[in-house]
C-alpha cells in the first residue's frame, strides 16, 4: 500500500507467467498486484470473491499447488510457476467434485458470496484427508466467514460426504 507522497510512486509493470486452472497467461502487472485481481481481471474468473482485502474472511481462497491460500493480499508474482486452482477449476470435465456435489445435495448456501471460499478450503482438506475429524474440519474452516448462517447446512454437507466416503470404503 502507498502511505505517503514520498518515494517512488510509479511502479513499473512487468510481464509474468501465471497459471490458473491449467491455463498459463502472460500478464503485465505491477509487482504488488494481489493474486485475486489477476484472477478476476486478467483471467476473467469471478468466482473468487473480494470480501475484505485483509485475509480475514476467506472469500478469496484458492488452491496453490493444492494448498489453500488467501489471494486478496499476496502479490501474484509470488505465484509464478505455481498451479493455481480457483472454484471454477475444481470441477473436472464439468463433473463437480465431491464437496460441490454434497453442497448441492444440501442446498448448502444462502446468498452464496462466501461459498466459493468455503468449498475451496474444504477441497484442500478432503484432498489430503479421507475422513477428517471434527477438529480438522473446524480448523480448516476457521476464518471462512458466513453471515447468512449457512454453517449448519455446510456442516451437514461435510458430514454427508464423510459418510459417503466411509460407505464407499
Amino acid at each position: 500500500m502507498v502511505d505517503g507522497l514520498q518515494g517512488n510512486l510509479i511502479m513499473s509493470k512487468s510481464e509474468y507467467n501465471i497459471t490458473v486452472n491449467g491455463e498459463t497467461k502472460s500478464v503485465v502487472i505491477t509487482e504488488d498486484k494481489p493474486l485475486l485481481y489477476v484472477i478476476r481481471d486478467d483471467f476473467n474468473l469471478t468466482g473468487t470473491k473480494l470480501g475484505c482485502g485483509l485475509e480475514q474472511c476467506g472469500s478469496c481462497a484458492v488452491l496453490v499447488d493444492g494448498n489453500k491460500v488467501l489471494s486478496c493480499n499476496r502479490p501474484a508474482v509470488e505465484f509464478v510457476d505455481k498451479e493455481i486452482t480457483t472454484i471454477e477449476g475444481i470441477a473436472k470435465n464439468d463433473v463437480l467434485n465431491e464437496i460441490q456435489q454434497s453442497f448441492k445435495k444440501f442446498n448448502a448456501a444462502q446468498c452464496g458470496y462466501c461459498t466459493s471460499g468455503i468449498i475451496v478450503s474444504l477441497t484442500d482438506l478432503f484432498n489430503k484427508k479421507k475422513s477428517p475429524d471434527r477438529k480438522e474440519i473446524i480448523d480448516n474452516l476457521s476464518g471462512q466467514l458466513c453471515r447468512c448462517g449457512s454453517h449448519a447446512s455446510v456442516l451437514k454437507a461435510v458430514n454427508n460426504l464423510i459418510e459417503k466416503r466411509k460407505m464407499n470404503g
Partner: peptide, 23 residues
Amino acid sequence: LHVETKFINSIVKGEYKFLHDLK
C-alpha cells in the same frame, strides 16, 4: 422431497454472477 434451489448449481461452480462481477 429434496428440491434443489434455483442458483445452487451455479453457486457451487463459482459461476453465479454478483453485481461485483459486472464488466
